[in-house]
Design a protein around this nucleic acid. Sequence first.
DNA 1: ATAGGGTTAG
Length: 586
Amino acid sequence: MAIQGPEIKFDEYNMLLNECVNKRAVREGQRVHAHMIKTCYLPPVYLSTRLIVLYTKCECLGSARHVFDEMRERNVVSWTAMISGYSQRGFASEALHLFVQMLRSDTEPNEFTFATVLTSCTGVSGFELGRQIHSLIIKRNYESHIFVGSSLLDMYAKAGRIHEAQGIFECLPERDVVSCTAIISGYAQLGLDEEALELFRRFQREGMSSNYVTYASLLTALSGLAALDHGKQVHSHVLRCELPFYVVLQNSLIDMYSKCGNLNYARKIFNNMPVRTVISWNAMLVGYSKHGKGKEVVKLFKLMREENKVQPDSVTFLAVLSGCSHGGLEDKGLEMFDEMMSGGDGIEAGIEHYGCVIDLLGRAGRVEEAFALIKKMPFEPTAAIWGSLLGACRVHSNTDIGEFVGCRLLEIEPENAGNYVILSNLYASAGRWEDVRNVRELMMEKAVIKEPGRSWIELDQTLHTFYASDRSHPRREEVFLKARELLVKFKESGYVPDQSCVLYDVDEEQKEKILLGHSEKLALAFGLISTSEGVPLRVIKNLRICVDCHNFAKFVSKVYGRRVSIRDKNRFHHIAGGICSCGDYW
DNA sequence: ATAGGGTTAG
C-alpha cells in the first residue's frame, strides 16, 4: 500500500487501517498513523478506534493507550476496545480502572463492554467489582445476553461460586458451545470432575456441538478422575473429527495421559508435536515428576535447554524441583535451585519453589538445613511448608525440631487432623506417651474432617468409587469379604496393621476394622475380585495415602504378583514385588 | 469498529 500526498481523507485512511488490522501489519499502521500526525489530520472517533484496535491486537498497548488518551471525544466502542486490549493482555486492574473511568465519564457500557470487562474480574478485589458489575448488568437487562451471560458465569465459577454460575447458566435463554464449555470448565477447574463429565454427557445428548476448548476442559476433568478409558475415547474422537490439533488440546492430552498413569502415551504426543509451548514442556515434566522419574525430569529439562526454543518459566522450575525431590535426586535439585536463583532466566523464586527445596532437604534427612532455609526465605511459611518439615522430622526422628514445627502447625492449621497424627506419631516414636495422649485429645477437640477419604478404580470404562467403610457399592458384601480374606492372608506373610494411622481413640479390634475399611483397601479388594490374574491394578485416592494402606498395597503386589499403582493427592506410587517407587517417602 | 469458554504449577 502506498501513502501519497497530504490530501488523504477519511475513506482512504479507513481502507488502509482496515487492511492493517486484518493483516496485523503494525508497521504499516504506524506509517498511516504518522501520516495523520504529519498532515495535521485529526482523526474522528471511528478512525482513532481503528488505531486502538490495531495496536492492541499487535501487542502495542502503550501506543493504543496513547491514541486513546489523545482523543477529543470517545464513544462506547473506543472505551470498550481499550478495555478489551488490557483484559486480553492480562492487565486486569488497568481494564477495571478504565471501566470505572468510563462510567464516570457518563458513557453507557453495552453488551460488548460487559462481556469483556468481566473477564478481568478475577481475584478477590476483582470479584467484588464483578458483583457490582453484575447488578449493573441486571439493571440494564443484559443478564441473559449469551456473551454477557457466559462471561458472567465464568467469573462466578472462577471465584469458586459454582452454584451462582450454574444459576446464570440455567437462566440463559439460548446456549452455544462457549456457554456450555464455560460451565463445564467451571466445574472442572474446581475439581468437580464428575459433575463436569456429567454435564458434558448431558450436553452431548442434547446435541450440543463441541470444539477443541470443550475437549480441553473435558480432558481436565478426566485427568482429575484418572479416567484413562474415557480419555482414550476423547483422544480417538478428536482424531476422528479431524479437529485441528491445537497445541492446547495436545497439552491437555499429555496431562491426561500422564495423570492417568500412561507416561509413554504422553511422551508420544509430546514427541509428535510440531509446535510446543512452555505448557507442553511443563505438562510433560510434571508427568515425570509425579511418577517419581527424577532422571527423566532432568533429562527432559536438559533437552529443553538444548533446543532453546521455549524459555522455562516458574512452573518449569517447580516441576523440575519437585521432580528431583520425588525422584530422590537431592543434589541435582539443589543445583537446579541455584540455577534458578542465579537469575539467568529472570524467574523469581516463589514460596512454592522454597517448599520444594525444603521438602527435598527434609527427605534427604537434612532437617536442620531445611529448617534454616525456612527461617531464611523471604516468605512467611505456610502450613504446607511446616507440614512438609514435620513429616521429615517424623521419618528422621528429629523430635526437637519436630516439636517446635508441630506446635507452629497446630497454631496455623488447627483444623487439619493429619498434623495431629504426625505429631503424635513423632511423640510415640520417642516414647513420650503423655504427649501422645495430649495431642490426640487436642485433635478430638479441634480437628475437622474436611474431605472424606475416597478411592476409585476404573474397570471397563466405569469408575467404581469407595468411601471409608463404604456401604454403598453394589458389591459391598463381596468387597468386605475379600478385604477380610486379604487381611488374614497378608498377616500370615508378615503384614502388621499400623494402628498409628487410626485417628480415633478406640480399642485395637475397632482400630483394625477402621483400618481395613480405608477406601483404597476396598478399591484394591474390588480390583482383585473383578480382574483376572496378573492384570495391573490402578487405584486413585483423593487424599494422601496412609502408611498402612501403602504397606497393604505392597502385600497385594507381593502376594498376588500384581503391579499396583496408586495415585494419591501428590504423586504416583508404582508398587511391584513389595517395593514402591516412592522409596517410602511421600 | 468493540464481546464470552481453554492447556502446566499451587
